[in-house]
């Protein structure tokens, strides 16, 4: 699936998007897989309460299932307007 990062999450991880091969059942499982990869992911995902997630471009919770999902995005709380 495509995994996208925005704002300071993008800066900490060092790229805006990547393809990830995963069998993760939920967003939390995916986060744990990413954290296990490299310290930069651990730095970005250190405090999940400071992050928001969108699954297929809809805001979701971290326990959201990933079956059939094409795109997951991680970002800080939004500051529009």
């Amino acid at each position: 699936m495509d995994v996208l990062y925005f704002a300071w999450v993008r800066e900490r991880i060092g790229l805006p998007r990547e393809k990830v091969q995963t069998e993760a059942a939920t967003v939390t499982d995916l986060v744990e897989e990413l954290i296990a990869r490299e310290p930069r992911y651990a730095a970005a995902f250190a405090d999940l309460s400071a992050l928001r997630v969108a699954v297929d471009q809809q805001l979701a919770d971290f326990d959201a299932p990933l079956a059939g999902v094409r795109e997951v995005a991680f970002f800080p709380p939004m500051t529009g307007g």
Binding site: A7, L59, A73, F75, P76, P77, M78, T79, G80, G81
Partner: peptide, 26 residues
């Protein structure tokens, strides 16, 4: 619309000053 735009529309603001660049906190 403004209340939802502030915290439910996927925009992120960053302020650029002489001292550097800071993401605006929600």
């Amino acid at each position: 619309l403004m209340d939802f735009l502030k915290s439910r529309a996927p925009f992120w603001k960053r302020e650029i000053t002489a001292g550097g660049a800071d993401w605006v906190a929600a």
